[in-house]
Amino acid sequence: MLKLVNVKTSYGNIEALKGISMEVHEGEIITLIGSNGAGKTTTLMSISGITPPRAGEILFMGRPIHNMSPDMIVSHGISQVPEGRHIFPELSVMENLHMGAFLRTDREGIAKDIDYVFGLFPILTDRRHQAGGTLSGGEQQMLAISRALMARPRLLLLDEPSLGLAPKVVKQIFDIIRRINTEQKTTVFLVEQNANLALQAAHRGYVMENGRIVLEDHADRLLSNEEVKKAYLGM
């Protein structure tokens, strides 16, 4: 579904991605783990077209997307929940959701999908007219995921959804991610620092170090891999 071929991305003179190749298959949850500064967020931003790659290819459904503008990429079916949630602070919860559906014109479908995300996260229903900036961290994460779903993505990119949240909320959010994957058949690309959590949710995983992919395997095998255990699982 999504294929990265030798992707290189730089910020000025600093090369953040030193030629990475990965593949995401339709219907799966894959995770990209690695320490701070390994290049995980850059990978997602390169896919979304915010920091376009300097070299290499990104193919989505067989079509090259690495030269497309971010809005074109969204219209092809890739949505991102960025690190730190990035809720529009002064827009209401409803308006944030409508922004998620910005490129859609089917009013009825949008209304239906708003009901769907309110079903996933009932607490947002009570907050619908509240400004996004006044929500708690957990609620903001729920809103950020809901907003991304409003675009009806085929591929959902999630950057550190567990960051700074209480364990109970984290569990709730990961349950929903799995539910979206099975119910909506949405493919999920999950970036996490919490490797244990991510590998338990995912089918396959990639390990990233210093802008390179160093390991790739099924999630359960990565969970029992000695090096991964030592470096990322704290065992």
Binding site: S48, G49, I50, P70, D71, V74, S75, S79, Q80, P82, H86, F88, M99, G100, F102, L103, R147, A151
Partner: peptide
């Protein structure tokens, strides 16, 4: 940046 990410 977020506006770009939702397709604006």
């Amino acid at each position: 940046k977020m506006a770009m990410l939702v397709g604006v």
